[in-house]
Structures are given as structure tokens and as C-alpha cells.
Simulated assay, not measured.
Amino acid sequence: MSFLDHLEELRWHLIRATMSILIVATAAFIAKDFIFDVILFGPKKVDFFTYRLFCELSQSLGQGNSLCIDEMPFRIQSRTMSGQFSAHLWTSITAGFIIAFPYILFEFWRFISPGLKKKERKNARGFIFIASLLFFTGVLFGYYIVTPLSINFLGNYTVSNEVFNDFDLSSYISLLRASVLSSGLIFELPILIYFLTKIGIVTPQFLKSNRKFAIVLVLILSAVITPPDIASQIIVTIPILILYEVSIFISKVVYKRQQKELQNV
């Protein structure tokens, strides 16, 4: 195929991926009550799963109700004419992207797989499943851990009793969207390291020797996507560090396999 033929092929893959997002986004747009009242505003309610879990944890550790939440002292409002409609529209598109993520990967795989060798296609057979599993795990982590910690901290933070927290709808949704999507993408780290090792950009030795720098970057990243309290940062840092160690293991496996293939040539 010529370069223009490749571009034409890529265009149709992008069109199909975009259509899948729009189809799911339309369904999410129709299911407005469930998307907003149950999912989006779930972390705002004191009986949210994560808050109940922390409360039960503090009681089981003999700390009483130290981690229990009795109220969320803030309100959510819309201060622009198109605020609620815009929030509805962009939330639907975000939901479309998240739910259609496996199909988007499938279209990406269909585009690149013809350029791979038969053995490479065989070795990457579980790519879509593993990448989707990691992404959805990250999304759930962002929704059930990062988002509640952020909302609880920022919602209860005050500089004076004279100031009442009235958060704009777009601000609330932006916080939730950033927490969920950033966590989902961060959990794709092992997949990224796999491909970077395959093309020779990183090696296991490089990842090991730069572990201390990676830890610093992880701490900075955790500070960015979580509220500025130590407990929240530790909760977010631990799984990211585990992902980094898993990435080192994956890089080691890929690197050894490549070295063995070179020896057999």
C-alpha cells in the first residue's frame, strides 16, 4: 500500500472509532438521570461506597468514627445559561469514550496488525483485553479512590466560616473527569513500557537505574491528582509504584525474548 492508501485506511479506522464513541455517548445522553444522579453525584453523597468503607475501617481499627463522614458542606450550582446542557453533552461524550475504549483499541489494532510479523501478532494476542482491563481498573480506581478523596478534602476545606462552598457544576465535573481519565491512562503504563521496550527505547536496566527518579515523578503526579494531604497521596502512590514494578518485569521479559531471538539469528 502507498502512503496515501495507509492514510485512507487510517481515516476509516478513526471514523469507526469516532462513531462508536458517538453511539455510546447518545445512549449516555438519554440515560441522563442514571449518569448524573447515580454516577456523577454519587461521590457527593455521604453514603457513597468509599466513605462507608473508610468508616467501617476506622471502626474495625478501634478509631471510632474518625474516618466517618456525616455531611458534605457544599452545594453544586450552574451559573451560566448553557451550563447544564454543556455538562450533559460533554459528560455523555466522556462516557462514550470510556465505554467504547475496547473498540477504539480494536480499531487501532486492526490498523497496526497487518504491519506486524506473524509471531509478533501472536505474542500480542491479548493486547486489547489486557489494555482494556488496565484502563477500566484505573477508571474504577479514579472513581472510587481519587475522586472521593478529592471531593471530601476540597468540599470540607474552608479559609473562614464567612465563606460557604458553592461549586460550579463544570468545576465539579472537571474534577471527576480528570481524576477518572488520568487514572485510567496512568494504569496503561505497563502497556506503554511493553511497546517502548519492543522498539528499543527503554530497557529493564534503564527502568531499574532510574527507579528513584520514577518515585519522585510518581509522588509529584500523586500530589497533582489528589488533595494535598499525606494519606491521600500515599493511597494513590502505592498502586502507581506497583504498576512501575510490573512494568519493569514486563520490560525484562520482552528484552530477554528479543535477546534470545537475536542469538538464534
Rank of each mutant, 00 (worst) to 15 (best):
I193P: 04
F206G: 01
T237H: 06
G83L: 03
W90V: 10
P228Q: 11
I191G: 03
S251V: 00
K118P: 12
F106Q: 10
S160R: 05
F127V: 03
V224S: 04
R125Q: 13
F249S: 01
G138D: 02
T226G: 05
Q263C: 00
G184W: 08
S179Y: 05
F135G: 08
N264K: 13
V253N: 00
I191W: 02
S182V: 09
D229K: 05
Q259K: 13
N152G: 08
F106A: 08
V265N: 12
I191A: 01
K32Q: 13
R75G: 02
S20M: 05
L169N: 02
H6E: 07
T50C: 03
L149H: 09
F129P: 03
E188L: 14
V139Q: 02
E107M: 12
A87V: 03
P239R: 04
D5T: 14
Q205K: 14
F101V: 07
S60H: 12
D47G: 12
L10T: 13
G200T: 00
Q77M: 11
D70R: 02
Y51F: 14
L219H: 12
G62D: 09
L221E: 11
L176E: 07
D5C: 07
K256Y: 13
T237K: 04
I30Y: 15
G62R: 04
P228W: 04
S60E: 15
F49Q: 08
T203G: 00
E107C: 08
V163Y: 10
R211D: 01
F54N: 13
I225Q: 03
F41K: 06
K256P: 06
R79A: 08
S58H: 01
G83M: 04
L175N: 07
L185P: 00
I99N: 00
V265D: 10
I151M: 00
T91N: 09
Q233K: 02
I145L: 10
V38S: 11
A231T: 12
L7T: 05
I186Q: 08
V216Q: 01
K260Y: 12
F135N: 01
L14N: 05
I93A: 06
V224H: 10
S78E: 10
S160C: 07
F41N: 06
G42D: 06
V224L: 14
L219F: 15
D47A: 11
L61N: 05
L243R: 00
S113M: 03
A27M: 14
R79L: 11
G115D: 08
L133A: 15
P148K: 08
R16K: 14
D37A: 09
E8P: 04
A28Q: 04
Q84H: 07
L57R: 01
P190W: 15
S171C: 05
V139R: 05
V265M: 07
I242N: 01
